[in-house]
Design a binder for these strands. Sequence first.
DNA 1: TATTGTTATACTCTATAACTATA
DNA 2: TATAGTTATAGAGTATAACAATA
Lengths: 133, 133
Amino acid sequence: MVDETALPQQLWDFVYAYDAAYDRAARSAGLSAAQACLLKEVVDAPRSMSELAASLLCDASNVTQLVTRLEARGLVRREPGQDRRSKRVAITAGGIEMVDRVRGAFTFPQDRLARLPLESRRELSALLDAMRD
Amino acid sequence: MVDETALPQQLWDFVYAYDAAYDRAARSAGLSAAQACLLKEVVDAPRSMSELAASLLCDASNVTQLVTRLEARGLVRREPGQDRRSKRVAITAGGIEMVDRVRGAFTFPQDRLARLPLESRRELSALLDAMRD
DNA sequence: TATTGTTATACTCTATAACTATA
DNA sequence: TATAGTTATAGAGTATAACAATA
């Protein structure tokens, strides 16, 4: 376990800025970050509601609402699943276009990263290096 | 500008997991992530409402509500600012204790990072290295 | 009984617009 | 007029609990 004290405050700042950048990209496409995340999860293959809850780290009832909103906009489709209880969420052409838009709008928060003290960037690099082994 | 296509999907996964870890830590202390972030901003020195809006990257009206909730729980205090329009948000002893609790509960999502392909970790390291110069 | 998903509900986050008080 | 902050409002994200249908 990596000690928390070894993590520079600036690493959190970087994550925060990265997150905000993603949020901006999603919003520029007319989506919330949560909606964009869900679309990304189903862009390659359909997923069941429970699979989505697991990978999005949220409750199933939340997925229900997210999917309902996305379905109302024609970006995903509920399809019958394996047994008659489960459903698969499949992306539509419109949904794929949205994913592409978000990707295109995303810009790496280089300015924030560049503002990190040398020391912090070194620490982060070292942290990653240590994990290679 | 760093090209978006150079960023591995796994980098986003890492950021996502890091963010979720912070959220868990905050919740284990009975705070939302947004509340914990605000407390962190005022832990060293009082800040005005508008300063908080700027550093939290959100609207001032949002800060008003966050501070109102935190103040109701005795974690921050509104103090008179420079002129009679502005206010400073100061942390209380209870607020400091909360920040410490969140810090103590935060655990680095090492498992996720360890799951990154070597290739991705190398790319991230390289990205950081390149920015040193 | 256990699992999959939904519904009802409540709280928080967030922004926009309109507002008050002060500068 | 401009600035700091608040209030009113609305939409979205989120979880808990209770529920229906299926296994």
